[in-house]
């Protein structure tokens, strides 16, 4: 009897832990989604002037880009390697918005 209860409790603990883990991963992936959407919005504004979308000036854009090297490199690795590199980059920003 005692064994049974212990096993049950043990399973319950695992179950709760699993739920927590699942909730955690769920919420993180929700956050990650928001994160990547924001990143896309941000890069669109910053890269905009280089592809003719008037936001900040091209110079300001480049100045900001110099602080965003890693992010741009990451984006570029995702982008198609066509002739219109900036264009591909912009289209790779995509997003659900």
């Amino acid at each position: 009897m005692f064994k049974l209860v212990k096993r049950f409790l043990g399973e319950l603990v695992l179950f709760v832990k699993g739920i927590n883990r699942a909730i955690l991963e769920d919420s993180v992936s929700a956050l990650e989604l928001e994160y990547s959407e924001l990143e896309a919005a941000f890069m669109t504004i910053v890269l905009g002037p280089l592809v003719g979308v008037k936001t900040v000036s091209p110079i300001l854009s480049l100045e900001l880009l110099s602080t965003l090297k890693d992010e741009v490199k990451f984006l570029e690795s995702r982008a198609l390697k066509g002739k219109d590199l900036l264009g591909d980059l912009m289209s790779s920003l995509g997003g659900e918005w």
């Binding site: 919420s27 993180v28 956050l31 994160y35 924001l38 919005a41 941000f42 504004i45 910053v46």
Partner: peptide, 18 residues
């Protein structure tokens, strides 16, 4: 940009922390 960036930075923080 500052608004978006602040949100990005804090999300990055929360995600990493979690």
């Amino acid at each position: 940009l500052i608004n978006i960036r602040e949100r990005i930075v804090s999300l990055r923080y929360v995600i990493s922390k979690t």
